[in-house]
Simulated assay, not measured.
Amino acid sequence: MSSRHSPFKSKGGFSRILNAARYSAQGLSAAIRHEAAFRQELLLAIILTPAAFWVGQTAMQVMLLLCSLLVVLIVELLNSAVEAVADAVSLENNQLIGRAKDLGSAAVLLSLLMAAGLWIVCTLNHWYRIL
């Protein structure tokens, strides 16, 4: 490992905040342009966001429903980042790269299952007052 500092790291201050915002916007734009799974999950989040205010009985339930959608998007972005780096390293069949991609995919699945569970429980509670 080199002790040199990366030339890509910013120095700090207000310009760092502006650069971070720009990089974040570029990342979201890239995800929308290049990642079909992110587009699908984003569309689902857009559709379900208003529903969260109808399904949720309390402010806490609404926040849980909204946060579950956000977690799915965050995990998908991280998975896409892992896949992009893995593909940049090698497009050949590599056991470790394959495992990294599978682990990222498993994380997306778990986030989707968590969100689905929360939505199912809150929706059942909305209709049948189970809790």
Rank of each mutant, 00 (worst) to 15 (best):
V55L: 04
G117P: 05
L70Y: 10
V82Q: 01
W119M: 04
S68N: 03
A31E: 12
T49A: 05
Q40V: 13
A88Q: 11
I120N: 07
L78I: 13
T49L: 09
L77Q: 06
V62C: 05
S80R: 04
N94S: 14
N79L: 00
G56Q: 02
E83P: 04
E41N: 08
S29F: 06
Q57P: 02
A86T: 15
A31N: 07
V62W: 03
L44S: 06
A106L: 15
M63L: 10
A59C: 00
L91T: 15
E41F: 01
E76N: 14
A88G: 10
N93R: 13
A88V: 05
A81S: 10
T49M: 08
T58W: 00
A52K: 00
V82L: 01
Q61V: 01
K101A: 00
E83C: 07
S111K: 07
E92H: 08
F38I: 05
I46V: 12
A100Y: 06
V82P: 01
A51T: 15
N94H: 14
V85A: 12
N93G: 11
L77C: 10
I32T: 06
A115D: 02
P50C: 02
A81D: 06
L77E: 04
L69P: 08
L113F: 07
G56Y: 05
G56K: 11
A31K: 04
D102Q: 15
L112S: 10
E35K: 04
